[in-house]
Amino acid sequence: MKRVLVVALRELLAFFLSPMAYVIGFLFVFFRGWETLALAKSFADSGQDLNAFPMLYAMGLCGQMMAVLAPPLLTMRLFAEEKRTGSLELLMTAPVKDWEVVLGKWAASLVFFMVLWAPTVLLLLLLQAPWLLGAHLAAGPIFTVHLWVLLAGGLFLAVGLFCSSLTQNQLIASISALVIINLLLWGPFIVARAGWVPAEGIWRELFSQVYILDHIQSSFGLGLIDTAHVWFYLSTTALFLFLTVRSVESRRWV
């Protein structure tokens, strides 16, 4: 585990020293702030129930963009760049196992991803200050919404990492990750909209299990934690990390 930590710290440092990270961070925080303003105004004007605020906040366009776009951007270089420059071979000759490299890189990107979200959590908490908005936002849904961000972020970053491990080209890595993430996110939605969902049975259960947008709408966004949903994110993240390890390992097959 110590070696995982070393790899993670190295990657984390690389993230924090990269100007791109701050550009993404600035844009995200700015647009998130703008979106929060619009949301608060719409709630104040319509008298809508504030209990719905955390969910709409999480489902806002900027939040979704962040959840979908940031992981491919953050992970695209992690293996592709190292493959292109040849530094991966150097890393692999170090006394560190493949899975430790994968886990370290994934952990670093997850920490950085959550750091990007931190200002928006702070803003949400600040909205409750009497001098700002004086809104009574329930802590439970705010926590669960960000738990979803953490779990879904972990999954999407694992997808990004997997795609990065398949190619030397960062653009291909990011686009393929974007495609898979969007499939994961919108695929079940399209299937549901098309009415192709079986009424009951195993396939129905599996469908409900992979319907990410429904997870946020029917549980995390409302302050509910369903262990079945949590397991989906953990197990699918583990799957993609496993595939990444296999992919990294594949250089030894020939």
Partner: peptide, 16 residues
């Protein structure tokens, strides 16, 4: 994942 949806393994925490 199928097992996780079944009753002995599934739990819900209501923080609303």
């Amino acid at each position: 994942n199928l097992l996780a949806r079944k009753s002995p393994f599934r739990a819900r925490f209501d923080l609303s």
